[in-house]
């Protein structure tokens, strides 16, 4: 599963899923799970590619900004020893936006970095995808290619990284 680090909802149950969500992922409705996946894909997407794919949809919907786009900080936490009690070890820039479309649909975006345009576009895409009539076309035109892009990058990285894996062979030693 190449994209297991990207797509939170793909996390195998039982492996820290409880820590991730504060509740079982099964506690989320299918709409919520879809939104969680969608927001994650959009957050992880390169901005240029997101804009390019959006343009292929040839949409120009009107929307109102309810909050943001605004940049702030998220405090990043690790765990002592890797698996123990949490500690703060730094911060990262994060940008979020919430929009309302003309039909009243709400969309959210929150992502690392400071790209206001990307956050607003991601929120618009999130809002549009809440419309069952639009969901499939957004999935095909934007989400599937973005997911594939990240998967492809991970695949290349893995192929390069695994080429540096050490294969030990034991030398014959001594005279006995």
């Amino acid at each position: 599963m190449q994209d297991q680090h990207t797509i939170a909802a793909d996390t195998a149950p039982g492996i820290g899923a409880d820590e991730l969500f504060g509740q079982s992922p099964d506690g989320l409705t299918s709409d919520q799970q879809a939104r969680q996946q969608r927001m994650s894909i959009l957050a992880n997407a390169p901005a240029a590619e997101l804009i390019r794919l959006w343009k292929t949809m040839k949409l120009d919907p009107g929307c109102e900004l309810l909050r943001g786009p605004e940049t702030g900080l998220v405090a990043l936490r690790g765990r002592i020893g890797g698996g123990g009690a949490p500690f703060n070890f730094g911060e990262a820039t994060v940008t979020r936006a919430t929009v309302r479309m003309e039909d009243g649909a709400i969309g959210h975006a929150v992502m690392l970095g400071r790209n206001h345009g990307k956050a607003k576009l991601a929120a618009v895409i999130d809002a549009l995808a809440t419309d069952p009539a639009m969901e499939a076309s957004i999935e095909q035109a934007i989400l599937v290619p973005l997911k594939a892009l990240v998967a492809e990058r991970d695949k290349t990285r893995a192929a390069e990284t695994q080429a540096t894996r050490v294969n030990f062979f034991t030398m014959v030693r001594g005279d006995d």
Binding site: E19, L73, V74, A75, G78, P86, T164
Partner: peptide
């Protein structure tokens, strides 16, 4: 620079056991 930005929240503790390994 960081002092100029509001804090919007706290991450879940990162899971280094699920790291995409480079080394």
């Amino acid at each position: 620079y960081r002092t100029t930005l509001p804090r919007l929240g706290y991450s879940q503790p990162i899971d280094t056991g699920k790291m995409t390994i480079e080394r």
